[in-house]
Nucleic acid binder design. Structure first.
Lengths: 335, 335
DNA sequence: GCGGTAAACGACACTCATTGTCGCATGGAT
DNA sequence: ATCCATGCGACAATGAGTGTCGTTTACCGC
């Protein structure tokens, strides 16, 4: 792309900044030369050395003082977005952060911090001294469970192995605290259930698909040379649908239930299904009709209303609720 | 910052790209000159005009053909991160997206798309043809309610008014479908409850704080000149704590409950509280002890287990659960 | 329709930032 | 100790980027 007014230098410098990895990883000027050449920038190594030194005066770059220099962004370098973040996106990040705080492992959540900082900066730039902190909140509508503590490196390794479709070696702590070591973990998929992160994988030479809690790994080391083995006919969606994670997908049913008016209020605004209908009853309750899947979660959700709901149809579900209620009473029978 | 080897041009071009807003907004070369000058780059307007034309050959920029040209990034322009996204962050975005899909209004969720694209690109760059799509899933651990449909412009306007602490005019549809018009909405805070987004605001000349469902706004127009009025002694946290959103914060209690073993399994890994303890009982159940807040959500969560849980302490809560169970049975009494 | 104003743009010459080359210093490996 | 690769200072060449100026274009008020 050599032309008059091409700003080739500027474009190359931007590409240089893009190619630089963040701290733990580094890149040598030689490698950088190849990468840039692949993007159409053919320059001398000397120029790249100079550029890196120059750029490091304006951006938080650093290099290990090794012989083939390894350059990288400093670990806490701010993120610069092109185009930079607009207020609406900044708001989305703020709100997302509120939602995610109890849902994502802490180390993954921390990955968003530079973006949140970018959001604040994007706002601060335009003479708005204001901060979101005083202006957005979340009111939990579920019980806040503590997300498991985790290890940043291990999650990163597992994610990278999954991505690169290679194995990793690992030590793992069982539910009963027994420690096991695996020579080859063949990662198949990551599954989130609430805040819990599961890895589906086959182990060593075995064929069966196992669920491993990511936060139970004690160590994980990438084996880039060891390609992952994929079991024949593995179908992630089918695995989940069939109940691999305790929540098998149920059949669609036509739910009819009577709610106390207050209890069902927010159903108006966040409906259960697209075809949901709510009509007033004579006794002050409301009748909800909706097509939903017949799952354990549905029961759990209905039970949460306590005596605030009465299932009318289907009859089987009504019977089940009634039976559950009787067993609850029995639980609390006087001794 | 004029110096030998300063790469002043390149730095200025990067800053130019940063200052360019995304599509609906535009910036004129004149304004750009002032902005750049504020960052220490003093150049002729002619140069900026040239730069913009040059840059638009390499980046998706466009200008309305108005007389003072308005330049901007094209609406679907990809995001370039400096430093670019690493695989672990890309993974975090993927997982976050899974969590957020049912929680954020669609138009806010869409704000993340460029970042997800950047994530894919970051991976694709390093010869990994691989896509996350087949490898990450979420298993919902709550009933999936439909997030309300919303309007991108209205959310953006509300967010911006909140941020800039100015009013906006609006038309609003009440719960009972009556339409109201407000000359001045004074935005105080945004509150998320599940997927529902509420604006706390005072209206026109009134002093009382109202809750407005953002997705019920029919229109919203920013009034940048009209500064927001803040009621005296408004305390967002206090407002929520006192039950402004139906979930008043309860007193800490010492919960003791017996769970069926299977039901409590995941409590091991995502505890209720930091001091939670779980011990086996003789009858095959487990005894959970934890300090939690005595809230409606707690009841709702406990009820969800149906007969799978028995609250032992505190006595008041036990009595309440027992009473609820009796009323449930009564609900389902044979006609 | 018409003149006035402001912005955009083409042309051009100047200059200095950027680059490749070369030579020397440094440091690790054989 | 020697060799090789790398980093870096110096320097000269050149051409990219800049300000200036003059012309063209579009818009606005009268």
């Amino acid at each position: 792309m050599p032309d008059r007014d091409s700003h080739e230098t500027a474009l190359r410098l931007i590409e240089t900044l893009r190619q630089l990895p963040r701290y733990p990883k580094v890149i040598t000027p030689q490698e950088l030369r190849d990468r840039l050449a692949a993007h159409g920038f053919k320059v001398d190594i000397r120029t790249i050395q100079r550029n890196l030194n120059d750029l490091s005066r304006y951006y938080p770059l650093c290099n290990d003082e090794k012989k083939p220099q390894g350059w990288c962004w400093m670990p806490n370098a701010d993120i610069t977005d092109l185009p930079s973040m607009d207020p609406a996106t900044a708001l989305a990040f703020r709100l997302a952060r509120l939602h995610l705080a109890p849902l994502l492992p802490a180390t993954l959540l921390a990955r968003f911090d530079p973006y949140l900082k970018a959001a604040d900066r994007a706002l601060g730039d335009s003479d708005l001294t204001y901060r979101w902190a005083d202006k957005v909140r979340m009111v939990p509508n579920g019980l806040a469970l503590r997300p498991p503590t985790d290890n940043a490196e291990i999650i990163a390794t597992v994610g990278e192995a999954l991505l690169r479709e290679c194995c990793f070696t690992a030590r793992y702590r069982n539910r009963d605290d027994a420690e096991r070591a695996f020579q080859r973990v063949h990662p198949l998929a990551l599954v989130l259930r609430g805040p819990a992160l599961y890895l589906l994988a086959t182990l060593d030479d075995f064929e069966d698909v196992r669920q491993l809690r990511v936060h139970r790994f004690l160590s994980a080391d990438l084996q880039p040379e060891q390609p992952r083995r994929l079991p024949e006919n593995f179908d992630l969606d089918a695995y989940i649908r069939k109940g691999g994670f305790e929540y098998p997908e149920g059949e669609p049913i036509q739910l009819v239930a009577l709610f106390q008016r207050g209890a069902a209020r927010h159903l108006d605004e966040t409906p259960l299904s697209d075809d949901q209908r709510i009509v007033d009853e004579d006794d002050g309750r409301v009748r909800l009709t909706a097509t939903v899947n017949d799952t354990a979660l549905l029961r759990w959700w209905l039970l949460g209303f306590g005596a605030g709901v009465e299932v009318r149809e289907p009859a089987a579900l009504r019977a089940e609720m009634a039976e559950t209620a009787r067993r609850m009473v029995w639980r609390y029978r006087p001794a």
